[in-house]
């Protein structure tokens, strides 16, 4: 198998990284198959970043690649080389690490906090069945409901908009109306941890 043709996205970001960090060790790892998975490995002053690229998927990025894991996919993703380069500069200059998105379902979050459905229902002054319904629903949920549930667990709901160029902004919302059937009491009460969570 011959090496895949050098894509312009790979060439562009490689050139930019070499120009910005002339002392960095950079290795471009080409796939054997067309449309295969490309890698660019960068090591600058001991800070290692692995970039991946594939046609139609854009860039993936992970620092400390492979540490304590095998076959893991990218921590962060970018649609083009401009966004990936900007993030690369930020990571290398700041010696900052990427981190995988930690996604949990509402039920798992409650369990992680050591809170039972009964306790959460008491904190929100609703029936346990209401909590079960909220945790089990697969369609939309009001932000206000979600905010109340997280607050009752002792947390604060934050929403972040992330863009391909690396810009991240926390979103603010005006108070939205609460539908009657989903109305939850405005409570600041939260429940503590316990070991016999459901």
């Amino acid at each position: 198998m011959a090496l895949a043709k050098y894509p312009s996205s790979i060439a562009a970001i490689e050139q930019k990284i070499r120009k910005r960090f002339p002392s960095a060790a950079i290795a471009v790892d080409a796939p054997s198959r067309p449309n295969g998975l490309w890698f660019i490995d960068v090591n600058h002053q001991g800070h290692a970043i692995s970039l991946q690229w594939q046609e139609g998927r854009g860039f993936g990025m992970t620092t400390n690649p492979g540490r304590g894991a095998y076959g893991e996919k990218a921590h962060e993703v970018f649609v083009d080389d401009a966004g990936a380069f900007k993030r690369t500069v930020s990571l290398l200059l700041g010696h900052v690490n990427t981190s995988p998105p930690e996604c949990v379902r509402l039920r798992e979050l409650r369990s992680l906090r050591g809170i039972s459905q009964v306790e959460l229902a008491e904190a929100l002054d609703v029936q346990q069945a209401a909590i079960s319904k909220i945790e089990g629903r697969k369609d939309n949920i009001l932000l206000s409901t979600l905010r109340s549930v997280v607050a009752a667990m002792g947390g604060e709901l934050q929403l972040t908009a992330r863009f391909p160029d690396g810009v991240e902004k926390q979103l603010l919302f005006d108070e939205e109306p609460i539908l009657a059937e989903e109305r939850l009491p405005k409570t600041t009460a939260s429940v503590g941890r316990r070991s016999d969570a459901q």
């Binding site: 998975l37 992970t62 894991a69």
Partner: peptide, 18 residues
């Protein structure tokens, strides 16, 4: 999946090299 879901995956055919 392109971005990690927390799972580890075995080698993929599109990542092969001679």
């Amino acid at each position: 999946t392109w971005q990690t879901d927390g799972r580890m995956y075995p080698p993929q055919a599109d990542a092969v090299r001679d």
